[in-house]
Design a protein around this nucleic acid. Structure first.
Lengths: 231, 231
DNA sequence: CGACGGATTGATCGTGCTCAAATCATGTGG
DNA sequence: CCACATGATTTGAGCACGATCAATCCGTCG
């Protein structure tokens, strides 16, 4: 399955560099990364599964273009999205043997990937790599801790305001955001229904806090008021 | 402040052992742990703060006896407890410079502690220690991911059933659990009010699924039915 | 242009919250 | 040892927020 849409040759990256100048996410994937890590590129179509919950974790991924959702399901279909991954983000990194959430491409998506085993071996000799693995997992934990507070204690408007500010920070270009995900995805990320998300967005528009140009093209017009709404 | 109730002399642990026979939590604290890690013991009174959100993280802790809650607060006092730590559990481990939640003793509590700097230095030369730091953080992340699903998508009875099964697994002795935390703590962990928690427990009692001997002494009488209630 | 999926909006419902009171458990001082 | 105070827990009544069900509306792509 992996070979079906393999786009580029596997590449061995060799240029040495001072690791302190790289963010953790860049340590493994950037062309200025560590010695000898084999990186390939791969593409997934919209809605395609990248890996499933409880599947053995064979690769670590970095989004090149597109967007990914990572989620857990209950037996009756209720879904909780734990995180969205956008260009530059690393995902699928596990300390244990298996993935604990499912990852799917939200839109057509290209990723870079490294074999987990390669990374583990590198970490066994290079403490800088070992430290990076830890700090990336710690970064995911920090996000999860913030998100637990949101899911457990914030009301609908606070959740939506928080979401908009997060996406603004992560994917705003020229003051505009182009959301890759639908209202249902947003709801499943925020622990709300898609209707509640839609109503909150409409209300924010009517208050002049944001403007639409198409349902997924949003311009924040008043970040200060939005920050007030986010508890 | 730390010196006020220091109970035991600092101890240097030296006995070498095969690390694969230790759980990650034991690597640093057990007497059969790694060479040269300085461990001290310390006690906190009921309700005492162990560290605060955004404080520099100086120590890593292991509960010896008692119980700890770790939480985030919103400005208006809403609280989300991210985790309870019970005897044997390690907490306060950060990859970054500061704690991201507050930790408090729920009851009188004794902990062992290791200087974070010591651990970092050990990790810089010992890949087994480095790996343990990562896998403990990954363990917290796993718990947070499960808890996001609970907070975002489960109803009140499912949350309470999940809580009971978790506590049963972690602190049941002879089929009974002695909960160290009050109903408000349980509510703030589950994203519910204390009244909703109380009502759910009463309902489980009336169905014969559990029995009380005092509000915090609970015996699970039908774990299978409880598992069914937990989505 | 038509069809389809996504988004918005409306109306009603229900779960869990709020406010309130009663009950129980625990510890303290006389 | 008992009386009392205090905090924790339970239970009740009513309410509100977000969910559900349903009907358009809109944008995109064939």
């Amino acid at each position: 399955m992996l070979n079906q849409s393999l786009r580029t040759q596997a590449t061995t990256l060799k240029a040495p560099v001072d690791p302190s100048t790289c963010s953790p996410a860049e340590h493994f994937f950037s062309t200025s990364g560590h010695a000898g890590l084999i990186v390939s590129e791969f593409s997934y179509k919209k809605e395609e599964e990248i890996y499933g919950e409880d599947e053995p974790s064979e690769y670590v991924y970095q989004v090149v273009s597109g967007a990914v959702r990572s989620y857990k399901l209950l037996s009756d279909g209720r879904r909780q999205i734990g995180a969205f991954y956008l260009p530059g983000d690393v995902f699928g990194l596990e300390s244990g043997p298996a993935h604990r959430l499912t990852a799917e491409a939200i839109v057509d998506t290209t990723v870079r990937l490294i074999k987990r085993k390669t990374l583990e071996q590198a970490a066994a000799t290079d403490v800088v790599i070992a430290r990076s693995l830890w700090s990336m997992t710690a970064g995911e934990l920090r996000h999860a801790e913030d998100h637990m507070l949101l899911l457990g204690r914030k009301n609908a408007m606070e959740r939506v305001a928080n979401f908009l500010l997060e996406m603004d920070r992560r994917l705003a270009v020229a003051g505009m955001m182009a959301l890759p995900m639908c209202r249902r995805d947003i709801g499943d990320y925020l622990g709300l229904t898609l209707e509640t998300v839609s109503r909150a967005l409409s209300q924010l528009q009517s208050q002049g806090i944001l403007g639409f140009s198409g349902a997924r093209q949003i311009e924040l017009r008043n970040r200060a008021r939005l920050r007030n709404l986010d508890a």
